[in-house]
């Protein structure tokens, strides 16, 4: 962990809310992305990501620096997201949003509009396909795709071995390829 970050963590451990705000500003987007990848619902993802930061602040005194801060933070966030998703499934309140529309609403086409439209459509279908995976499979594929985390780090975050991460990733990718077929 870099020195400045460790310094901020130490300040947080002494109850410095300003230092925690700095850490939150650094990581909130990445945590939100990871949680959104699992939940596929913007409002729920926002709620769970905020809860993750709140819990991180509450338990930061127990963080000893054995891993990097973001690995530790991701672990809290992903556990919350996985639990949330399981609860939602049990209660039968499966929610998804039309991310195609959300992405189109961002407007502004780049240099290759045709490719962008195609990518957005593929993004929407990919998200729908990911929604069909189990929370554990979603977590590994999202963490790998958005962060490029090592299998070791992913294993620490989701609480399994590197071998399990490898096999879950392999399975998840196979499933996605089957669902997306010729779209890829």
């Amino acid at each position: 962990m870099e020195l400045a970050e460790w310094d901020l963590v130490r300040k947080c451990q002494n109850g410095d809310l300003g230092a925690f705000e700095e850490l939150s500003a650094k990581y909130y987007r990445r945590v939100f992305m990871a949680v959104l990848g699992v939940l596929n619902h913007r409002d729920d993802a926002m709620d769970v990501a905020q809860e993750a930061f709140y819990r991180a602040f509450k338990s930061i005194k127990r963080f000893e620096g054995g891993s990097s801060f973001y690995t530790w933070l991701y672990r809290i966030a992903m556990n919350l997201a996985i639990d949330f998703q399981r609860r939602r499934k049990r209660n039968g309140t499966e929610l998804t949003e039309n991310f195609d529309d959300a992405m189109f609403a961002q407007g502004e086409m780049g240099s290759d509009p045709y490719r962008e439209v195609r990518d957005r459509e593929l993004g929407g279908r990919l998200r729908a396909a990911i929604d069909g995976l189990t929370p554990d499979h979603k977590a590994v594929i999202v963490l790998r795709a958005i962060e490029g985390l090592s299998y070791k780090d992913i294993g620490r975050i989701v609480g399994c071995s590197e071998g399990t991460v490898m096999s879950r990733l392999h399975y998840a990718r196979k499933k996605l390829q089957e669902k997306l077929g010729s779209d890829l």
Partner: peptide, 28 residues
């Protein structure tokens, strides 16, 4: 798959400003 997923999620996250996010955390 990797790049599309990353870009899709990043596009979503780019729309989230920090202030309201932090307000929610701070309130808790």
């Amino acid at each position: 798959i990797n790049s599309t997923l990353k870009n899709t999620l990043a596009a979503e996250a780019a729309n989230i400003p920090f202030a309201p996010f932090w307000a929610g955390v701070h309130a808790r």
